[in-house]
């Protein structure tokens, strides 16, 4: 059997997607902070550190379970998944590839650096992921999940979701 390395673990994790945004893998989302591989009793042991996108994100439990399943199905039995809050996750950690995948999936990706905060009532100018128009309108600051807001395109008239800069 090949020696287990963090690279192999990362490859396995690349098959784990966000249950609420299935277009994105956990690596695209940037929620995997660290992978450590060690030996325990002649068998490999893996410690994965993940971070929540929002404090109450209910997908985190499912994501942890799916990570565990992905590793178990490749014969890795000693798995320890820990959650870490600091530094707080931001949408800047989402990969460029992830943002393209989101767009292709019909969700307008975050485009602003999270540190460039908006004023209290300033609004993001969001591009429609379907027709590319800049003429869009916020419908609701909150959407089907904590990480998204609802918009409507004034050019093609399609409603769409935006993954909020956070």
């Amino acid at each position: 059997m090949n020696t287990l390395t963090p690279d192999i673990v990362y490859k396995l994790l690349a098959s784990v997607t966000d249950p609420e945004v299935p277009a994105l893998t956990v690596l695209d989302l940037g929620i995997v902070r660290n992978v450590e591989v060690s030996e325990k009793g002649n068998a490999p042991s893996v410690k994965i550190t993940i971070t929540p996108t929002y404090s109450g994100c209910p997908a985190m439990d499912v994501i942890s379970m799916n990570m565990r399943m992905a590793l178990l199905s490749h014969g890795i039995k000693q798995i320890n998944i820990e959650s870490q809050l600091t530094p707080a996750w931001t949408t800047d950690w989402m990969s460029e590839e992830g943002k393209q995948k989101l767009k292709a999936y019909g969700i307008a990706p975050p485009y602003r650096k999270a540190a460039d905060t908006l004023g209290l009532f300033e609004e993001d100018a969001i591009t429609c992921p379907r027709c590319g128009s800049q003429e869009t309108e916020l419908v609701s600051q909150f959407g089907a999940t904590s990480c998204k807001a609802l918009y409507k395109c004034l050019s093609c008239h399609e409603p769409f979701e935006h993954f909020k800069c956070h």
Binding site: P52, Y54, S55, G56, L85, S140, F142, G143, S146
Partner: peptide, 20 residues
């Protein structure tokens, strides 16, 4: 509907903070 979603989203953030 949008405001129902807003309230439950905020509630969810609060429960997440409470859990931590």
């Amino acid at each position: 509907l949008e405001q129902d979603i807003a309230l439950t989203n905020i509630s969810l953030d609060d429960i997440g903070q409470a859990r931590s």
